[in-house]
């Protein structure tokens, strides 16, 4: 029997849904293969989240609680993750693929001499390790990979698996942690533009994304209004974040966030492959663009060819009626 361990990421005082998706999947894999499921929470208030994690049925929940984990910092996080791996000796250690995960995954693999596959959309256990599917070439095609060995790290794209609760009376193991500030050579000086009220795009049910076509104030106002009617997260194409019109954290695509909402409304976005790489797994895609040949229409379930300034006002009005 081997241990399958899931990292439970905390962001803005909440468990990242992607962590629970991964935990749900790993527990199913453990049950099918006779393995043990465990989880680890590393946060300044780690113990707060234990009850919620129990709902997903790990046999053991490790917690590492220290004020140093208030913000993401790779040196202490790596030390804590290494400590948990020494303690739990997992065969597979799985993560939701967040920016924080991306920051530490390679270093952790090198430190632990582990095999690693990042940003997978599916994976399962095999006799030798895991096999996983991941989008490559700007998500134009898929590749199948295998990772072999006693220690395997894997990060999973958000939205890859459904949540599956199965409450357990998990054993809770608190691990002591300490680190000298002098061992942390990097200094976190500031965090700019962190806004905890914002809807997290990687977990949003609905996203309204703005492109070059919605660059001016009137376009931005319409985007905001549409998002507010649908209680949607707001995203952007690279054209808008580069132009400084929208915050870089809102960028969706190969370079930015990968999203998989129920509804994705692309407004004034042409649909370059780098953008499509970040949103093609949305359930329903609506595109509004005045260019009938825009590539976004090739992947949209519903395409409206038209000027967004003429289409959005009646669209917003109609949605208001439907919602009321």
């Amino acid at each position: 029997m081997s241990t399958l361990l899931t990292h439970i990421a905390i962001s803005d005082g909440k468990i990242k849904r992607s962590s629970l998706e991964v935990l749900s999947h790993l527990r199913q894999q453990a049950e099918a293969n006779g393995h043990d499921t465990e989880a680890v929470i590393i946060d300044q208030n780690a113990s707060q989240y234990v009850d919620q994690v129990k709902e997903y049925g790990p046999s053991t929940i490790y917690t590492i609680e220290d004020p140093i984990f208030e913000n993401h910092r790779n040196t202490p996080l790596l030390k804590a993750l290494g400590q948990v791996m020494d303690e739990a000796d997992p065969h597979v250690f799985a993560f939701g693929s967040t920016e924080s995960t991306k920051d530490i995954l390679g270093a952790l693999a090198a430190r632990q001499d582990a095999a690693v596959l990042s940003d997978v959309s599916e994976f399962e256990l095999t006799d030798e390790g895991i096999k996983a599917r991941r989008p490559v070439m700007a998500a134009k095609i898929l590749s199948d990979s295998v990772a072999k060995g006693d220690k395997i790290l894997v990060s999973v794209r958000s939205g890859s698996y459904d949540l599956d609760e199965s409450s357990a009376d998990s054993e809770v193991v608190n691990l002591d942690f300490s680190i000298d500030e002098s061992d942390i050579k990097a200094t976190l000086r500031d965090i700019i533009g962190a806004d905890s009220d914002k809807i997290d795009l990687s977990e949003a049910e609905t996203i309204v994304a703005a492109g070059r076509g919605a660059k001016d104030d009137e376009g931005q106002e319409l985007i905001n209004e549409l998002a507010s009617v649908l209680n949607a997260g707001i995203g952007a194409s690279r054209a808008l974040t580069e132009a400084g019109v929208m915050d870089p954290s809102l960028q969706i695509g190969q370079t930015g966030k990968v999203v998989s909402p129920q509804l994705y409304i692309a407004v004034g976005i042409s649909g370059a492959i780098q953008h499509v790489a970040g949103m093609a797994n949305s359930k329903v895609i609506v595109a509004i663009n005045k260019d009938p040949d825009a590539p976004i229409f090739d992947i949209a379930d519903y395409g409206i060819v038209g000027d967004l300034y003429k289409v959005l006002p009646p669209f917003i009005e109609e949605l208001k009626k439907i919602k009321s």
Binding site: S11, A186, T187, I192, G193, D195, K198, D200
Partner: peptide, 17 residues
């Protein structure tokens, strides 16, 4: 300046880095 999960983190790295 790195793009983190919610905001941009400003980090001072002593060289070599």
């Amino acid at each position: 300046k790195r793009q983190g999960d919610s905001g941009q983190e400003v980090i001072a790295l002593p060289q070599p880095c």
